[in-house]
C-alpha cells in the first residue's frame, strides 16, 4: 500500500471552510453550538466532533497586518507519540497509508494520547469515554479516493498524493515562494506538510508547534522506564537467588542439635 501525504499550501487558503464542512459531512460528525469569540475562527477549537478546523490568526510583521487562515487537523506523524503512549492495542494505529487512525471499539478512554501528542490533536469525550481525531479519511484513501477535505478544497490549498511525489512538490513550491516546508525536523516527520510563506512563522500562529518532536517524557517513559521495570525486577530476582545460593538464609549461627 502506498504511503500518502496531505499538503497544505498556506498561500492558497481563502478560509472558505469547505474542508471543515466536508470533514463533518463524510465522517458523520454533528454540528456544535458555537459562540462568537471575536475572531473569524468558528468553532473556537478542535473537538471530539470537529476533526478539522480553519484557524484564524492576525499577525503583524514588517509589511503590516496579515490575516492567516490555516487548515488544522491531525498531522499523521511517522513515529506517532499518541500511538507510543496508547495502552490499548488497536485503539490507535499507524497504518501502511501513513494515516494514524483511532478505533473507538478499542479505546479505553485513558487520555494518554491527548497529553502525548505534540500537536494537541486527539480529543476526549467523557460521554463516550473515548477519543476521536482526523483519520486522513482512511476509509476513502484505501478506496483510491482523496480525503474529504482535499476533495472539497476549491483553491488547491489542500492536495493529496503518494509520499515521494508530494515531498518533491512541497519542496518545489516552497522554493518557488521562498518559503519553508513545515515540519522540517528530519527526526520527526509527518504525513501532513505545510507550505509556509517566508513572512509567516509557525511560532506566530496559534496551536502550531514551532518545534514538533516526540516529547522527551514519552521517550523516557516508554524507552527507558518501561523496559527497565522488567529488567530491574529480573536483575534483582537473579541477585536474590544468587545470594541465597552463595550466602544462604540469614540465621543465627548457633544451631541446636536436631533442628
Amino acid at each position: 500500500m502506498t504511503e500518502y501525504i496531505k499538503l497544505i499550501d498556506l498561500t492558497k487558503c481563502t478560509g472558505c471552510r469547505g474542508c471543515q464542512v466536508a470533514c463533518k459531512n463524510w465522517n458523520g460528525l454533528p454540528a456544535e453550538k458555537t459562540q462568537f469569540i471575536g475572531s473569524l475562527q468558528n468553532p473556537a477549537d478542535l473537538s471530539y466532533d470537529t476533526w478539522c478546523l480553519i484557524r484564524f490568526d492576525e499577525i503583524e510583521n514588517g509589511s503590516g497586518l496579515k490575516w492567516v487562515m490555516r487548515h488544522d487537523a491531525c498531522m499523521h506523524c511517522d513515529w506517532p507519540a499518541c500511538v507510543k503512549a496508547c495502552p490499548s492495542p488497536g485503539a490507535l494505529v499507524k497504518t501502511e497509508t501513513g494515516a494514524v487512525v483511532h478505533d473507538p471499539n478499542f479505546c479505553i478512554g485513558c487520555k494518554a494520547c491527548t497529553v502525548a501528542c505534540p500537536f494537541d490533536i486527539p480529543r476526549y469525550s467523557a460521554v463516550n469515554e473515548n477519543i476521536s481525531k482526523c483519520t486522513l479519511c482512511y476509509d476513502r484513501i484505501t478506496d483510491g479516493r482523496k480525503p474529504a477535505c482535499v476533495t472539497s478544497c476549491p483553491t488547491g490549498c489542500l492536495t493529496f498524493g503518494p509520499k515521494a511525489e508530494m515531498q518533491v512538490r512541497a519542496r518545489a513550491r516552497a522554493a518557488e515562494i521562498s518559503g519553508v516546508v513545515y515540519p522540517n525536523n528530519p527526526k520527526y516527520q509527518t504525513n501532513v506538510l505545510y507550505i509556509m510563506p517566508a513572512e509567516i512563522r509557525a511560532a506566530q500562529l496559534q496551536h502550531m508547534n514551532p518545534n514538533p518532536k516526540m516529547p522527551t517524557t514519552v521517550l523516557w517513559w516508554k524507552n527507558l522506564f518501561k523496559p527497565f521495570t522488567l529488567i530491574g525486577m529480573g536483575a534483582v530476582a537473579g541477585a536474590a537467588m544468587l545470594h541465597y545460593m552463595v550466602r544462604g538464609p540469614h540465621e543465627p549461627e548457633k544451631k541446636e542439635g536436631g533442628e
Partner: peptide
C-alpha cells in the same frame, strides 16, 4: 507529561525493591 513519566519511573524503583522485600 511529567506525571506519566514519573509514574513509570517510580514503579520501576518500587518494583525492584519489592523483589528484594519478597526475598
Amino acid at each position: 507529561r511529567w506525571a506519566y513519566m514519573l509514574h513509570a519511573a517510580s514503579v520501576m524503583v518500587i518494583a525492584a525493591f519489592f523483589i528484594i522485600h519478597l526475598y
